[in-house]
Design a protein around this nucleic acid. Structure first.
Lengths: 341, 341
DNA sequence: GTGAAAGCGCTAACAT
DNA sequence: ATGTTAGCGCTTTCAC
């Protein structure tokens, strides 16, 4: 049903229909009622594209591409971003990619298709055999895009990130001040930019301190609970030392590790733990333990990424000579209980 | 820049521009290149409303109204729903209301304006002084809507919910089998339908068991961490009993309670805990404690709500004689450690 | 291969 | 108070 048909049925002109729809006070009450009755009867609702085209208005929508909505770190970011957006009267098109390349691609195309005003993009794993042309398409369509938390190799879009390498370096240094000989680093997949940087920070510290190859070991997980559990079990079952140091590259794997640690902790005299980033919950779990960690400014980077995007949306013609890559640092929290030494 | 202007500059007709944009193989390579060059130079991108209007296509967007994206329960639901949506090639417009009426209203209007295909609606607190006309508008615009997890008084939209009252009743019964005399119920705000139902379940059990007024006490929180902490502190500081039973109406408040419990637990000989719904994390925290709880089928109700919505979208003319209100039950987990009795 | 022109459904200026 | 009509920017048929 379109406006013309309704007009014919109601025995008025399309203009009158339009007026009724738009609450123009000029229409006579009786006409209005008649029209409304017909509209209701035929379930008429205006075609919004026609309306928008005609009115020349444009939607304020921003695309948010996220690998894992269920991950607390990301869901907090989404919370922040959606609140910022609401203030600017911008709505969020949520694209949950599960970290899959094909979905990233698909969603990106949809976002371009919808002509969103901008995109905040948290990529999944980098797949070197893929070309990521969909990202180029975004720029080609003049849609501002910013990376958040992670970036894609080869794409120098602006973005806001944790200062992963630095923080990881500092954590490693800190734990190695007092830690037992053998240190395990439970890393994320190096195909995720943030995980790779954390790895680099760890490596840098270890190298600087001349820790030998026998004294440290790196295990690779996938940032998820299960892999923290599995790798933890692997370590705790097989290691013969009495004292151990474990540095876990993210929150979720740390939870998995702590879960399995309960089963095996009696076996060891002392286990020192370092975790890259802590949540309130993790903190509760660790309440009486010794550990080194840091609060992650994830909400801050989310907010900054939105501000950056808005800036780019509002100033489309500004050309920066350089890429804007914002890194957020944080301070290390050392809760190693000195008593235990 | 519109198609006409580009056509003029490129010295071709609008049809040719359109063909280039749509990758029509018929256009000569040289023409294509010329046009592309001009498009690039003037940053031309087609007006998507015009395209859609002309092509007669229509967006597949569904609105998702959520009070608190950061809440793990909801973020898991969002995860599920966005995955379901992706399979159906539907995109999600995320509306984070913070549980505020005005935002619910604003977002609802936006959703209507965008003519989304349907709406999944998780309301915040019910405010009796508000009229919720925006909800009526949704129906008036023939947009299918389903409630999820919570409902709004006076609106008999279809929906999928936990069987709050029943589950709460069962939990209460279960804990009162063995629990110490004094029982506290830490409730959510009764203005949230789910909290109210949980309250009713508790009350029913207490009444049935002839628990006297002195033997139970109800504290009202807001489902958030802080209120669990605050009310917990209140109870633990002031109660003079040696043994206590605490039943907490949701996950997040339970976390707050457990946090404060660590400070005060020595004071008591025994504290029995019941929690309405448990997450993996909460489970870890409680690992060595005695408690009664249940797994919440939050992912299931999310999925069902989406299916219900899709069903309504695909069969707009089906009239059910009755409202479809789907309640999901679950089994009670009793981890009260018998040794301790 | 390319262009002219009708049409998508609505709005708004102008006319009555 | 209501109708007529020229757009809005694009697609697509038909003609050349």
């Amino acid at each position: 049903m379109n406006i013309k048909e309704i007009a014919k049925i109601a025995n008025v002109s399309v203009a009158t229909i339009s007026r009724v729809v738009n609450n123009d006070p000029k229409v006579k009450q009786t006409t209005r009622e008649k029209v409304e009755q017909v509209m209701k009867q035929f379930n008429y609702t205006p075609n919004s594209y026609a309306t928008r085209l005609s009115k020349g208005v444009t939607d304020k929508i921003v695309g948010l591409v996220v690998p894992d909505v269920g991950n607390i770190l990301f869901s907090e970011m989404i919370e922040v971003i959606s609140n910022c957006a609401e203030k600017e009267n911008i709505t969020i098109l949520l694209c949950n990619t599960s970290g899959e390349y094909e979905k990233e691609k698909k969603f990106t195309k949809i976002l371009i298709d919808y002509k969103v005003k901008g995109v905040i993009y948290i990529p999944g794993k980098y797949e070197s055999n893929k070309n990521y042309t969909h990202l180029k398409e975004v720029s080609l369509n003049n849609i501002p895009i910013v990376f958040l938390d992670r970036e894609v190799k080869g794409f120098d879009f602006d973005g806001v990130f944790l200062d992963n390498q630095n923080i990881s370096y500092n954590i490693t240094k800190e734990i190695l001040k007092t830690a037992p000989k053998k240190i395990y680093f439970i890393s994320g997949s190096l195909d995720i930019s943030s995980a790779h940087e954390r790895f680099l920070g760890f490596k840098k510290a270890v190298d600087e301190l001349n820790i030998s190859n026998e004294e440290y070991e790196i295990k690779y997980g996938d940032f998820k609970f299960e892999s923290g559990y599995r790798l933890g079990e692997d370590i705790l079952k097989n290691d013969k030392n009495e004292e151990l140091t474990i540095y876990i590259a993210n929150n979720t794997m740390a939870l998995g590790f702590l879960k399995v640690l309960k089963k095996h902790s009696k076996k060891f005299k002392r286990i020192s733990i370092a975790i890259f980033g802590i949540s309130d919950i993790l903190d509760m779990l660790l309440d009486e333990e010794n550990y080194i960690t840091c609060k992650l400014p994830n909400k801050e980077i989310a907010e900054k990424s939105f501000e950056l995007l808005i800036d780019k949306i509002n100033n489309p013609n500004t050309c920066y000579e350089k890429r804007k890559k914002i890194l957020c640092n944080t301070t290390i929290i050392n809760r190693i209980n000195q008593k235990s030494f």
